[in-house]
């Protein structure tokens, strides 16, 4: 299936694009990230430390082991600094 992957803040800068459409059979977010990290050195570097990555699936915060299901949009970003 096709998933729209969004990146924010320094993840966006290190990967070099704000979003991309990815064809994937990944079962979980963790599997999808492994696929992304294998794409090129930029993705690999940005996604090397998953403790620094937060995840939203279809705009809801979730974790690495969340099933991807029929997700349309997966966002990866650093810990949030609002307020």
């Amino acid at each position: 299936m096709a998933v729209e992957v969004l990146y924010f803040a320094w993840l966006r800068e290190r990967i070099g694009v704000p979003r991309e459409t990815v064809q994937t059979d990944a079962a979980t977010v963790r599997d999808l990230i492994a696929q992304l990290a294998a794409m090129d050195e930029w993705h690999a570097a940005a996604l090397s430390d998953l403790s620094a990555v937060r995840i939203a699936v279809d705009q809801e915060l979730t974790d690495l082991d969340a099933p991807l299901g029929h997700a349309r949009e997966v966002a990866l970003f650093p810990p949030m600094t609002g307020g």
Binding site: F8, A9, W10, A56, L61, A75, F77, P78, P79, M80, T81, G82, G83
Partner: peptide, 26 residues
């Protein structure tokens, strides 16, 4: 405020006299 700080999808980057600097760490 506590929810906004850590769970609202905002990210801050510092800008100094020489231009954009570091992203603010949580």
């Amino acid at each position: 405020m506590d929810w906004l700080k850590s769970r609202a999808p905002f990210w801050k980057r510092e800008i100094g006299p020489d231009g954009p600097g570091e992203w603010v760490a949580a």
